[in-house]
């Protein structure tokens, strides 16, 4: 509260107090003492001490050579691995979004065959570990040794050994993309369902075909519900790419492992990789926030930024210091 106004109010109170017995309904200005929260300070202090102790142990550990961390941050192999991680993320998410939308519309269609196929796909790819799927696609040649399209003997189409096509990178894209499609299918389906049925009915009553109603009325509104969880998926896929290190796809974690297997600075290089993953997820988070605000969907925007709420809840400040009360 403005201090001059508080003074004025207090002055008024003093005058009122010296005027003898107050008439009924008279008011006075009294100071408000905010409640204090000592346990917030105690709890906060203990937690903070533990964190500082942990960080100090790591930072001063004689077993971590920080100069190695610094030396490898901009290492060529690491940066090339990071580039592949980004490519892998973007390609798999794109495959996931497109195939996921197709699966979602199949699931919501009136064709029972398509419904069942879509459900079975989603159940299979969500129900098995991604790591197994990655190893599976890398070894698909054991099941299908030769890929043949058309009729090569007759002079059209081609035939090739599966292993020639199924490189670690192809297997990684297939595994991540097909797995992601199952998750995106549920996100897109949820988005479509979130649009009230009346929208579709109104579109139908105006003579729009089912396809037109879906593409021009329902999907544009489903995007509201689809964008925020897709941003989350971007971050999840980004980190999941590290799993393809089991088939040595040369992305960031593979590159890291390759270096520490020769120089044995295991922890140092993992810190480098972890740091870059954090930078990439931070950028993805900023992009996600930007996209959401562009679509005007920041429904949960707070009135006060975090640092103000932090200080307020510790010190109980920002409340009225004086209040006018009856009697």
């Amino acid at each position: 509260m403005n201090s001059t106004r508080a003074q004025a109010l207090l002055g008024a109170d003093r005058t009122a107090a010296t005027d003898g017995p107050r008439p009924r309904g008279a008011t006075s200005i009294v100071q408000v003492i905010p409640a204090r929260y000592p346990y917030r300070w105690i709890g906060g202090s203990i937690a903070l001490l533990l964190c500082v102790w942990g960080l100090y142990t790591v930072a001063t550990s004689p077993n971590i050579t920080w100069s190695v961390v610094a030396a490898y941050i901009l290492n060529g192999t690491i940066l090339e691995g990071m580039r592949l991680t980004i490519v892998l993320t973007i390609v798999s998410l794109t495959v996931g979004v497109i195939l996921g939308t197709v699966l979602a519309t199949m699931r919501l269609s009136n064709n029972p065959v398509l419904q069942v196929i879509s459900s079975a796909y989603i159940t299979t790819f969500r129900g098995t570990p991604l790591l197994i799927q990655i190893i599976f696609w890398f070894n698909i040649a054991l099941v299908v040794p030769v890929i043949r399209i058309g009729w090569p003997q007759a002079g059209f189409g081609f035939e090739t050994q599966t292993n020639v096509i199924m490189t670690a990178m192809t297997a990684a894209i297939l595994a991540l993309g097909l797995n992601e499609a199952a998750y995106m299918a549920e996100i897109v389906r949820g988005g479509i369902i979130s649009v009230p049925k009346g929208q579709d009915e109104a579109a139908s009553s105006l003579g729009l075909t089912k396809r037109q109603a879906m593409w021009r009325v329902v999907l544009p509104q489903a995007v509201r519900a689809i964008v925020p969880p897709t941003g989350n998926q971007l971050i999840i896929v980004l980190k999941n790419t590290s799993l393809v290190s089991v088939i040595a796809a040369r992305e960031l974690l593979t590159a890291t492992q390759q270096i520490y297997s020769t120089n044995f600075y295991t922890i140092e290089l993992l810190i480098v990789a972890a740091g870059w993953y954090m930078v990439m997820t931070a950028v993805a988070t900023i992009l996600q926030g930007y996209l959401e605000s562009r679509l005007e969907y920041s429904l949960r925007s707070r009135t006060h930024p975090f640092h103000k709420r932090f200080v307020r809840s510790l010190l109980s400040i920002g409340r009225k210091n004086y209040m006018e009360v009856r009697g």
Binding site: A202, G207, L208, T209
Partner: peptide
């Protein structure tokens, strides 16, 4: 469905909950 959609143009419908495209 497409022929039905064309037939619906003969009638105009106004709903209880308006159902304007948001």
């Amino acid at each position: 469905d497409d022929r039905l959609a064309a037939q619906r143009c003969m009638t105009g419908m106004v709903f209880q909950n308006f159902n304007l495209f948001g």
